[in-house]
Design a protein around this nucleic acid. Structure first.
Length: 419
DNA sequence: CGGTTTTGACCCGCGC
DNA sequence: GCGCGGGTCAAAACCG
């Protein structure tokens, strides 16, 4: 009987309808994925499935292939995963809103019926406390046949129904507003992406022209000139992203933004790490390509880890981050780029530092290796993303301070692509 | 029993 | 060519 109530009442319950309201676009995959995140404890995921459902509002994006593919998702997930205060405040906020707009219909109703059930001795611990709340009025009218309060119950039920309808309407309005915002953001993103692509194409054409004119200079300059050109190439591609982007520093800041979303670390920490990488060179085990690639990843990954997941042909042909190294090599050797791309494994690495004890980046990672890094007593762990079959995204987590092994780690997101 | 972690071996790129 | 170090693989061990 309890089950029947729960099943029939699910869709009517304000909380459930709230869920449906927020997850109307694609609830099932997201929920399933978040539930599997329980297994992420080893790689740092938080575990709070009930709260994760409420992450979906922020991650609800009809155009995004998956929840973790959106930057906003990562940020929001982090906020929800990592901070219990946020959860409380958000849920409280919603309850406050309800109380303001609907005179506490939902909350008080549930409590009142609980009290009634206590009084009438019908208190059954079904474990469906929330799900059955909306229908307990009718339940009571059937169970408590002959009670003098039948008429009052009916009135109350009608009032509640009206209030629920009002609430539903408000939610629909809010839903529409959110959809509008979403479409606006999506349009902006698409426009920006097209702009970047156009800029890159224009840049490639511009580069080809002077190269053909100054071929003899390149021959004289030999590798050094080319190296310089190559090193500048990648950041320059993304200078167009911002009006004032002009140095690696700017780019690294941009990358740190992305890293922030991927690792869920505080901005200052990641930025510090990023700057550290920029300042470090040579033997500091951080190759400059990483920073450039990070910038590339940051620039192209405005949609999270999309490239890594979708193997998008755009990124292949447009010279995006993952293939920059390949392009550099092939251009230096004069080899056909497309042939070269098929032979090499391109890679984009994004580095971020996190002091959080748990890395809540919303992905599901499986450890596939561990190595002792030179000069570091703490081992470096290798994780593979298991959110999707064949997902090329991998993550390194290397602790950088033996005394803080449990809290301070160095994360490297590597997106491997088999061209 | 299936999934995950551990760990030694192997591969590959790079510097000398 | 050789050695070194980083990254990956895969079999064994472990775990729920």
């Amino acid at each position: 009987m309890d089950k029947g109530w729960g099943l029939t009442l699910d869709s009517d319950h304000p909380i459930v309808s709230n869920l449906n309201f927020f997850t109307s676009n694609k609830p099932k995959p997201s929920l399933a994925r978040f539930r599997t995140n329980r297994d992420m404890a080893a790689s740092g995921a938080a575990d709070s499935a009930s709260v994760r459902m409420f992450q979906l509002p922020a991650s609800d994006n009809s155009n995004a292939p998956s929840s973790s593919d959106d930057n906003r998702v990562a940020v929001d997930e982090v906020d929800f995963f990592s901070d219990d205060k946020n959860r409380v405040s958000i849920s409280d906020h919603r309850e406050d809103d309800r109380n303001k707009t609907t005179n506490s219909v939902h909350i008080k109703k549930e409590n009142s019926h609980d009290q009634l059930r206590h009084r009438t001795g019908l208190d059954v611990n079904t474990g469906l406390h929330l799900l059955t709340a909306a229908n307990t009025g009718s339940d009571q009218s059937t169970v408590d046949d002959g009670v003098s309060s039948d008429h009052a119950d009916e009135k109350r039920t009608k009032i509640e129904l009206t209030q629920l309808q009002v609430e539903l309407q408000q939610m629909n309005t809010e839903n529409q507003r959110l959809r509008d915002m979403l479409s606006q953001v999506t349009n902006n993103y698409n426009a920006l992406q097209m702009h970047i692509i156009a800029l890159m194409q224009q840049q490639q054409e511009n580069r080809r022209a002077p190269e053909s004119n100054q071929a003899h200079e390149v021959v004289e300059g030999k590798d050094e000139g080319k190296k310089h050109d190559d090193q500048v190439m990648v950041p320059r591609q993304f200078i167009g992203l911002g009006p004032s982007a002009e140095t690696d520093h700017e780019v690294s800041n941009c990358s740190s933004d992305e890293e922030r979303t991927l690792s869920g670390t505080p901005p200052n920490i990641v930025e510090a790490a990023s700057k550290e990488h920029v300042n470090s060179n040579g033997k500091n085990e951080i190759v400059s390509f990483d920073d450039q690639a990070a910038a590339a990843a940051a620039a192209e990954n405005s949609n999270g880890k999309r490239i890594g997941r979708e193997e998008s042909p755009e990124s292949e042909t447009q010279g995006w981050g993952p293939n920059n190294k390949v392009q550099k090599l092939s251009s230096a050797k004069g080899i056909d780029q497309s042939n070269e791309a098929t032979m090499r494994k391109a890679r984009v690495s994004v580095r971020a530092r996190s002091e959080a004890p748990m890395i809540t980046d919303g992905c599901q990672w499986r450890k596939y290796g561990q190595k002792m890094a030179k000069g570091n007593p703490c081992p470096r762990a290798y994780y593979r993303c298991t959110m999707a079959v064949g997902c090329p995204v991998r993550k390194q987590v290397c602790f950088i301070n033996i005394h803080l092994c449990s809290s301070l780690c160095h994360i490297i997101i590597v997106i491997n692509k088999l061209s």
